[in-house]
Design a protein around this nucleic acid. Structure first.
Length: 134
DNA sequence: GCCAACGTTGGC
DNA sequence: GCCAACGTTGGC
């Protein structure tokens, strides 16, 4: 099982939109590294949903429900299908992550522009734990 | 709104 | 194949 983080601008498509839709096609990715990461996703993998620009926080966990297939509106690019799994009790902000030494090596910190990125299991678990604290 | 960091494009 | 110029992302 692998873990991921996918960014979205809440003004365009937010966690709430995903929760309402029940499932969605993650399209519009036009970056080779991000595309490669989507191609590496397996059904059942989990992904944090991160709000960029507004919020700058991880708000929920989604599940990969369909592995990559060609983007119907763009040849050479791919999409995956995801469904919302759970909303974090407490969202974890970028500042929270930067303030935590254990998370200092996250791609989110090191390569802030990558829109689909891998997350280590230890990082994933740690963030989940943080989100359950009050 | 600014700008640093990064990716892509295209001239040579 | 290098690198300057340009466009985009996203934190601040």
């Amino acid at each position: 099982m692998n873990y991921w983080l996918m960014k979205t601008e809440p003004g365009t498509y937010s966690w709430d939109d995903l929760a309402k839709d029940k499932k969605t096609i993650w399209d519009g990715i036009r970056n080779f590294q991000a595309r490669n990461n989507m191609k590496a996703m397996k059904k059942g993998d989990l992904a944090f949903i991160y709000h960029s620009n507004e919020g700058k926080n991880i708000v929920g966990v989604a599940k990969i429900t369909k592995e990559h297939f060609p983007d119907p509106s763009a040849t050479d690019w791919v999409v995956v299908e995801i469904s919302p799994l759970e909303k974090l009790k407490k969202s974890i902000t970028l500042a929270d992550i930067k303030a935590c030494k254990k998370l200092a090596n996250m791609v989110l910190v090191k390569n802030s522009r990558l829109s689909v990125q891998p997350v280590k299991e230890t990082e994933f678990d740690f963030i989940l734990k943080m989100s359950q604290e009050q």
